[in-house]
Design a binder for these strands. Structure first.
Lengths: 213, 213
DNA sequence: AGCTTTTTTGAACGCTGTTCACGATGCGCG
DNA sequence: CGCGCATCGTGAACAGCGTTCAAAAAAGCT
């Protein structure tokens, strides 16, 4: 046999990611993968349960890479002795923006994929990879000098992540292409500034109830 | 003929929305629509260019309804004499959350649909409907007593919208179902609180450059 | 009524994901 | 070496999808 089984799987994943990145979810076809990988259609189903399994595996790799990108950005700032909270948060957001730009097709495909599955699959391993990102943000907030209890800090970290995520995805759904980048950068800058200032003021944020006051 | 052409279109759209809402994008099938509408497959293509056209039309209706939901929430607060910025923003966010909950399948389908199309279609009419929402938020901000120039206010409105959007979509991608609602409410409450406090502090937000300071 | 125009139809085409009987291929053992 | 066995790769076959288009039906017109 020419290819180790695991090596064949890697090949399929690499091809699948390229296909997703170039043409979105619609471009992930079993026959195309088989042809480009030099194997038969059936072998693809031997390596993975189905195409969704392939897509899931690609998504895992993407999330892992996003995690290391975030960690690398923090490590870089640490190496340069930068501890300013705003700069650190901006660096994290910048890492995310750059990651999305570097994966123009496969990242939207990941988002669309999650949307298609109701809640059937156990997202344990999925959420675990996201928690890793939340941890990074939470640790930056912990070093920021705001006196937040652990629970608030956790929620703040997730809020910050979700907001940046929303800005980026909304931004790339918009019309033009060059104006997008400016818009996104401005919105992220404003979000981070406002967020830090808002947290610095201290006080409670437990207005959990709806507008029934 | 039993059905006016326009009436038939409405019927198709209603059926399509139900299908999308119940089973997501994969559930929007030409043959199912035709069968449920009591027409033939070909007639569907007579009324709409293709299935994407049907989906687009459904999305337009959804965006319109979201717009009126937001406007209605503001009108309701106005009627009750409530002018507090926090309460108004929370009401807007709440309207959005309720809207998403009321459209568990068709709203994710709208998001996934936008993601699939690069930028080919002229999103004029699409963006116009979103601008209507931004206008509502911007007007609330304008009444809030922050001294923001018009441009900053516009960006802040979009940032707020994108952030809420990100919180909601990230929240529903998470695992459990009952914890989701609490998480989302808490994140939105924190976002709105922090945002208002951050804006109240005044000052400039023009840190447009990346972290190259 | 006949003729023309418009609309509706559903069989047909090409493509999709997925399966599975079959043949090839590697392997241990007498 | 030969032979049974198990493992794996294969691609034709199946069901279903979006989309088309010649033909039929309906509607309009004089």
């Amino acid at each position: 046999m020419a290819l180790d089984k695991e090596e064949a799987g890697e090949r399929v994943l690499a091809i699948a990611e390229t296909l997703l990145n170039e043409g979105g979810m619609d471009n992930l076809k079993a026959r195309t993968i088989a042809e480009q990988a030099g194997i038969s259609v059936g072998s693809v189903y031997n390596l993975f349960s189905d195409l969704d399994g392939v897509h899931r595996a690609v998504n895992m790799r993407l999330l892992d890479r996003l995690g290391v990108a975030g960690a690398a950005a923090m490590a870089d700032l640490g190496r340069r002795g930068i501890t300013d909270v705003r700069q650190r948060l901006m660096a994290l957001a910048g890492a995310y923006v750059r990651f999305v730009e570097a994966h123009p097709g496969s990242w939207p495909a990941l988002l669309a994929f999650n949307r298609r599955r109701p809640v059937l699959t156990e997202p344990d391993v999925y959420e675990a990879r996201l928690d890793q990102l939340f941890e990074i943000i939470a640790s930056v907030l912990a070093d920021g000098g705001f006196d937040l209890d652990e629970d608030t800090r956790r929620i703040a970290a997730r809020t910050l992540w979700s907001s940046v995520h929303g800005i980026v995805t909304s931004g790339y759904a918009a019309r033009s292409v060059r104006r997008q980048a400016d818009e996104i950068d401005q919105q992220i800058a404003l979000l981070v500034c406002v967020f830090i200032r808002g947290l610095e003021r201290g006080g409670t944020f437990a207005h959990a109830g709806k507008t029934t006051s």
